[in-house]
């Protein structure tokens, strides 16, 4: 338990988690802006999806979304073990969350390669522009969160994983997992 400070009080939240929370709020508004722009462009288009553009892989991405949600589930398990002080039980779910998250990002990358091959590019249509913008920004966040989780895994193994660092890493990953179903429904469906 954290010791009481000079004023007889302990801190409400680790600084790392607090900083990440502020960042996530800003990023939430970024995604909200992109979703809004997407809705307006979609509503103004004479037909949607634009003619001559490939169909987005709805089913495959739905399965990949389940992989991402499973990753979030394992991170919850790791979170619970961390707050119980059971660092040994935390290792496996944290590794599973990291592995499933990495699978999600790699699968998304392979999906992009296939779509580029079928003619969906940033400049081919407004669908292509928004698809790569929205999904790409999400992918960058996912990659950044995975790097933080990987560092957390290393720190756990070495025995100096702090609540602030782990809190920040898991908050970013939960944001990535939480915002994805919304993006999927908006962009793919």
């Amino acid at each position: 338990m954290e010791p009481l400070g000079e004023n007889g009080r302990s801190s409400m939240m680790p600084n790392g988690l607090f900083g990440m929370a502020i960042f996530i709020v800003a990023e939430l508004m970024l995604f909200a802006g992109m979703i809004s722009a997407f809705f307006i462009v979609k509503a103004a288009a004479p037909s949607w999806p634009p003619p001559g553009q490939p169909r987005l892989p709805i089913e495959a991405t739905a399965l990949n979304s389940l992989v991402l949600l499973a990753s979030g589930f394992f991170l919850i398990q790791a979170h619970r073990a961390f707050h119980r002080g059971d660092r040994d039980s935390m290792r496996r779910p944290l590794l599973l969350a990291l592995a499933l998250g990495s699978f999600f990002v790699i699968f998304q990358g392979s999906e992009w390669v296939a779509l580029l091959g079928q003619g969906l590019t940033l400049t081919s249509s407004s669908l292509g522009s928004f698809f790569y913008l929205v999904v790409g920004v999400h992918g960058i966040h996912a990659a950044a969160a995975l790097i933080l989780l990987a560092i957390a895994t290393v720190r756990l193994r070495r025995g100096y994983l702090s609540p602030g660092f782990f809190g920040a890493a898991e908050a970013l990953w939960f944001f990535v997992v939480g915002v994805w179903p919304v993006l999927y429904m908006v962009v793919y469906l």
Binding site: S36, F39, A43
Partner: peptide, 25 residues
Amino acid sequence: GAQTEASRKAFVGTTAFLTFLPLMV
């Protein structure tokens, strides 16, 4: 800016979304 009814609805909906989301957060 909105030329069609669908566009107008999208503008109104997204304006409301972007107004209330930060307040809720």
